[in-house]
Computed example of a mutant assay.
Amino acid sequence: MSGYLTTHILDTARGCPAEGIKIALYHVSGNAHRKIAEAVTNADGRTDAPILAADAFKTGTYELIFFCGPYLRETGQSDDDPLFLDQIPIRFGMADAQAHYHVPLLLSPYGYSTYRGS
């Protein structure tokens, strides 16, 4: 089986999944970024399918960009201009061609965390 990549977003300030957030996935090579996928989170805070499916999976360096600003405004968590957190980039490497990589985002209006999940 080939590897694949999934993600999800949990709104830790409200204690629920974060629905309706756009996510873009880029392949990174040196200073070059190439967008290879885009998705929007569903009611469970997940994408409907892996953001990088097994048939497109390649090892390398990637960056997920989470477009959280509109969600934070729509949920009334921030009306700052500019927002403290608007677009959140997470750069990571995938070295195992057979692995499932899961990169979640735990979000609040003024902080976030991530980890390699399962």
Rank of each mutant, 00 (worst) to 15 (best):
Q77W: 07
G69K: 10
A32C: 11
H8D: 15
R91N: 06
R91Y: 01
L25R: 07
K35D: 06
I90T: 01
I65M: 10
R46L: 07
F84T: 14
G111N: 13
A37S: 15
H33W: 02
A56C: 15
Y110H: 15
I9N: 08
M94Q: 02
S78W: 14
T61A: 13
D55Y: 11
L72G: 13
I65N: 12
A56I: 06
T6R: 09
H102N: 13
R14M: 12
S108T: 13
C16E: 14
F57L: 03
M1L: 04
T47D: 04
A39N: 09
Y101D: 05
H8N: 15
A49K: 13
G117E: 00
L5Y: 12
E38W: 01
F66A: 08
S113N: 12
H33F: 09
S29C: 10
T41W: 04
Q98K: 04
T59E: 14
S108L: 03
T61F: 03
G60H: 11
R14G: 12
A49P: 03
D48T: 05
E19I: 03
I88F: 08
M1K: 08
I65Y: 06
T75G: 06
Q87G: 06
D96H: 00
L105I: 02
G69D: 10
S113Q: 11
R73C: 09
T61H: 13
D48M: 06
L10D: 14
A37F: 10
G111T: 14
H100M: 00
I51W: 06
A95L: 02
D79Y: 02
E19P: 07
Y101M: 03
A39E: 12
A56V: 10
P70A: 13
D48Y: 01
P70V: 11
E63S: 03
K35H: 05
Y110S: 15
D79S: 14
T41S: 08
G45I: 01
G30L: 05
V103D: 02
D44E: 11
I9L: 06
I36V: 15
Y112Q: 05
L85D: 13
A95E: 14
A53H: 12
D55A: 15
F57P: 15
A24S: 15
R91H: 05
E19H: 12
Y112S: 06
S108Q: 15
L52E: 11
V103R: 10
